[in-house]
Design a protein around this nucleic acid. Structure first.
Lengths: 322, 322
DNA sequence: TTGTAAGCGTTATCAA
DNA sequence: TTGATAACGCTTACAA
């Protein structure tokens, strides 16, 4: 029989083929352990069954959860996910998008990245080129430019955290963040400041230290040297930095919670297991990743699709102030 | 000029092309934002520049670090990594290998998986089929079958942990593990038992609970109900399990370390930040991932390549017993 | 050194 | 419903 017939039975063609043929083909394929060459399929079809994921660091707890959601969505959609890590380097970011572009992916999911600066326009043109070959770009975070986006309501969540802490009796806060320019994190700073000051608190300082545990650790050490007053709450821009803060405090003999309170963002698994538990705002990272691939796959996309809600989780790291 | 010439300058051909041509081609490519269609390249060449990574769970702290190493190695080798997650389901494992196989990857890196059972032979034939299309399979863990392998000396590390704990004065241990059948974890159980009993300790029990934080949590609760005697050390087969154990103990009002000691394996980042710090055996996961892609890339492979050493790290969760 | 042309493994169009 | 056959975008003998 012809190759065409075989192709029709093995690959999702809508066309009908006689049962007898179908059986024979399937039997043969099974016997030979045949698997379609997806590259050839991709060249013939002009599009491949892959979705790219670009993140800063795949070992990061939060981004790992995100990736897990992406993997789940991709599996469900019959796509494979290829990942590329940028280390938060804008240059590498455009480089990896370029590399991924070579695969003519069905879509590309772009983790929180800088939205301005000279490299941002390079990125922009890479993304346009990608779109030009039929790939759908979805960015994580609030909608920007004409791309599809899935995001969480960071601003509202951060404000809620600020209000909650104020209500618990905190009056002074220090935020440990990184340089401005990443929308998600800028929203957190702004939202928290809003909520906290509205509740009657004061933002003592916004430190631009970085996104890592080490950034938190170092910042907390500095804070201690400068003599943080008891009853201050240090909020890390991500749970990992908050964890670093907690460790530094503990090592310096401060009691987390009683002496200095700590809060974060993301609700990574360890936030629950830290001692005391870390107060944080829970971001549905896994769900976000899943939705991102839905956004790639769905033919129609509602530009006004709502931000996912986030939720503040109060734990022992911010006990009520007497 | 001809397509052939253009192809030669853009894609690593050893052949020479006149400088004037080269320049013109490069300029044009740059201007058009041209990127080779890797799928087409792959069909033409018969092999693609991708390496597959198969892991149980990409959100897992340890596997995330592994993935980071793989990503680094792949980047360096000019490969992209496609990941597939199995959730430790043997059926899904053969399914994802099959799916990855469609891409005719340059190589496949296989996280710790079951080495026996009915599905293991299915896996085996998938792997052979993959090898048949020129893909190199490297398994993580001790060498088994004819495949390339990179691994750590789990057995020695576990024994060292057992000895260390015995030397610290512990005389009773409970191991929280999952079902047998995964070499790496079996080695940990065996090695620890060896070292601990050699040092004069007794293994009270090996619980088969699972690989997760929740498994550790539940096991610890059960242990408490059954009345663990103070001074026992509970060792989790992975740090995440140990973390779960610690949380359950703490919630039950037990002091980790003083009342019941806890230890784990992997040295994930949070082992250091837990309070008290978690005693564990450090496994160079990132390095392991990196070496795995080296093992894919390198033409020659020494079957007798040594296992990477691991190192025990003592922290506050196992204070010396008076 | 360059160009021509024959593949690579699929899909899809068009006749049969 | 089936089968030839021309794409798909690229690589690589082989000739020029």
């Amino acid at each position: 029989m012809s190759l065409a017939t075989a192709s029709r039975v093995l690959n999702g063609s809508t066309r009908k083929v006689a049962e007898s043929y179908r059986e024979r083909v399937e039997a043969a394929a099974e016997m030979l352990g045949y698997t379609a060459n997806l590259s050839a399929q991709a060249t013939a079809r002009g599009t491949s069954a892959v979705v790219g994921l670009v993140v800063a660091d795949i070992a990061d707890a939060a981004l790992g959860q995100l990736a897990a959601g992406v993997a789940r969505g991709a599996e469900e959609a019959g796509l494979v996910v290829t990942i590329a890590v940028t280390g938060r380097d804008p240059l590498r970011e455009v480089a990896v998008v370029r590399a991924l572009r070579g695969h003519r992916p069905r879509g590309l999911i772009l983790g929180a990245s800088r939205t301005e600066g000279p490299d941002a326009t390079d990125l922009q043109s890479e993304l346009e080129a990608l779109a030009g070959t039929g790939g759908r770009v979805v960015v994580l975070g609030r909608r920007t430019s004409g791309l599809r986006a899935v995001g969480t309501d960071e601003r509202a969540g951060a404000a809620a955290l600020g209000e909650t802490l104020a209500r618990l009796g905190y009056r002074a806060a220090v935020i440990v963040a990184a340089d401005e320019g990443i929308r998600t994190f800028d929203d957190r700073v702004a939202g928290f400041s809003d909520g906290f000051t509205t509740g009657g608190g004061t933002i003592l300082d916004v430190r631009r230290a970085g996104f890592t545990r080490e950034a938190g650790y170092a910042s907390a050490q500095a804070l201690i040297d400068e003599g943080v007053t008891a009853g201050t709450v240090v909020v890390g821009i991500r749970d990992v930095v908050a964890i670093g803060v907690m460790s530094a405090l503990r090592e310096a003999g401060r009691r987390v919670g009683e002496d200095v309170a700590v809060a974060g963002f993301d609700d990574i698994p360890f936030a629950q297991d830290a001692a005391p538990g870390l107060t944080t705002v829970r971001v549905p990272l896994e769900e976000l990743g899943y939705r991102a691939v839905r956004a790639v796959v769905e033919p129609e996309w509602d530009a006004a699709s709502p931000l996912l809600p986030v939720e503040v989780v109060v734990r022992g790291s911010t006990p009520p102030r007497a």
